[in-house]
Write a protein that binds this DNA or RNA. Structure first.
Lengths: 132, 132
DNA sequence: TTGGGTGCAAATCTTTTGCAGGTGT
DNA sequence: ACACCTGCAAAAGATTTGCACCCAA
């Protein structure tokens, strides 16, 4: 029952994530935090990212073949993951609600969340391929 | 342009995965393979799992907080992941096609795949919670 | 004052890789 | 024979954790 205490590191991490649309990895967050707190440790970043995830302030995305990514946009939306460059982009699809309802009907447990992900090539990577 | 050669290890791994509905991790596959090939190495298991994934014979699922899981059911379906015990279950939802089509309309890249995942508590974990 | 938070470093877990020898074609 | 595949072990990458000290409440 940890009584949460204020920490400026945690506040900065949250603030940073809210400004981003790039879904940074823990390490990217760490690199950015070092500019404000040169002595911050990677462990602290991880601990705070887990904490914020538990609190529901941010969302954790596990991506194939790489580090997990974090997202401060908690309203429901989907992600596109480029299989070439690994970039993660937001995608707004309305059908998710329907999907969720259909799943709930077919399932005996309790569904609390849903995340649809699309894989493929992003615009940039398609262009690069054409140049080869 | 690797010319694929037969390997009984790879064949066994594929066969094993096709019998499973539990979405085993690489390590679980390894443990099972050891019963047939006591000297098989974890490296071989990983190499073959990657190879089979590239061939499209199996599917790789990256799950939050844990090792990747493998699934030999390649026809499109969704997954439910229990946030309590980590179990992964298949879920059949028809709306996925609609979702895919809607996403393609809103996106400039090329979408090749889609995977919807649901999070929540499985039936067993709900029962356990009630007992406490 | 007290318990949560931090930095540091070591440990853990997962996955990849280099190499020498084995095996399918 | 040649190239792929394997076992072994070391390496690499991501994340967690133990510990002593610091700081918010």
């Amino acid at each position: 029952m940890a009584a949460l205490k204020y920490s400026r590191q945690r506040e900065s991490i949250k603030e940073f994530l809210m400004e981003q649309t790039t879904h940074p990895t823990a390490d990217m967050v760490y690199e950015n935090m070092k500019q404000i707190y040169p002595n911050i440790s990677l462990g602290t970043v991880y601990r705070n990212l887990s904490l914020l995830t538990e609190l529901g302030d941010i969302q954790k995305l596990s991506c194939m073949g790489g580090a997990d990514r974090y997202d401060a946009r908690t309203h429901p939306h989907c992600h596109f993951i480029c299989t070439e460059c690994g970039k993660v982009m937001d995608l707004h699809v309305q059908t998710t609600d329907v999907l969720l309802r259909e799943a709930e009907e077919h399932f005996n447990g309790k569904i609390t969340g849903c995340s649809a992900r699309f894989f493929g090539l992003c615009e940039e990577c398609i262009k690069k391929q054409k140049n080869n």
